[in-house]
Design a protein around this nucleic acid. Structure first.
Lengths: 150, 150
DNA sequence: CAGTTTGTTTAGTATAAACTAAACAAACTA
DNA sequence: TAGTTTGTTTAGTTTATACTAAACAAACTG
């Protein structure tokens, strides 16, 4: 891969770091993803540390995070002691599952609140209505996400 | 509204604060939303500050943020100097618009990267493919969100 | 066995952002 | 006009967390 492309990759890596951050993930996690998107062969632990100029501790925590999220996988090679990493088949699926989980949590909180509110208090009928609207919205959001991953 | 319900509301307020945080918004913004969901009448600036035990500075910044996001609106009352706030008609619409914007940004970054990569380098064909997969995914995500808000 | 290469964990630092207190400005009231 | 009541802005503090450096443990090599 020639130098010009290497510059493009560098930029992409940094932009992925920022996007990752705005998704609530550490910057380094996004940068690791970017590397694994851009290079065909599995990338080793120490290669990641060098390529991103980042401590081995950070590589460890962030690869573990991404593995846990189901976005990358750890692979090994015969006769090699290092760990390698590659993108998983559908990395974005697990992102969706994360969103889905948070949505479910939201509807749970709303339902719980609605059930706990005492019905004999007339002043809460507006609140009940707005809570229902909110729940309905989150439910349709959730099913849209689910449709996307099936 | 009786005391038991007031406790339920307190809990809901705090949970909304946490959910807000995991959506990338300040805790106080979520708590303000919760208040406006739970009470029918518009809530005043100083009421918010007292109810949430939060500085007036924070009320100012966070109400402005929520107004900017299109989730609440500032209203005034004849003969009153204070500002009041109420939920907007469809508060969740603007949340979706935020997600949509970030998705658009992602596809832009991907496209830009793809165009900048030199095609004469054979080693990037895998990268191109993975970038396309990523873009395709974000595009269908975006259109799912759009369907939701129309 | 001693020494190296690996990944993890921990303790400490750096950084970013939320929040507060207080100064401020504008609009009102007496 | 002097004094309040309002919302905003700013400077400083607090808090959360990403990140690093270094200690560590496990697996390997000679």
């Amino acid at each position: 891969m020639n130098d010009s492309n290497e510059n493009v990759i560098d930029e992409f890596i940094e932009k992925m770091g920022l996007m990752s951050q705005s998704d609530g993930l550490p910057r380094i996690a996004g940068r690791i993803l970017a590397v694994l998107i851009m290079y065909d062969e599995p990338y080793s632990f120490s290669q990641l540390s060098e390529r991103l100029a980042v401590s081995r501790g950070s590589v460890s925590t962030n690869t573990r995070l991404l593995v846990h999220l189901g976005m990358i996988e750890r692979v090994t090679k015969r006769g090699e002691r290092q760990d390698y990493f590659k993108l998983k088949e559908n990395p974005y699926l697990s992102l969706m599952q994360g969103i889905e989980a948070r949505t479910t949590h939201a509807t749970d909180v709303i339902e719980q609140t609605q059930n706990q509110l005492l019905a004999n208090d007339p002043s809460i009928s507006g609140a009940q209505q707005r809570l229902t609207e909110m729940k309905t919205f989150y439910q349709s959001f959730k099913s849209a996400i689910q449709d996307l991953t099936s």
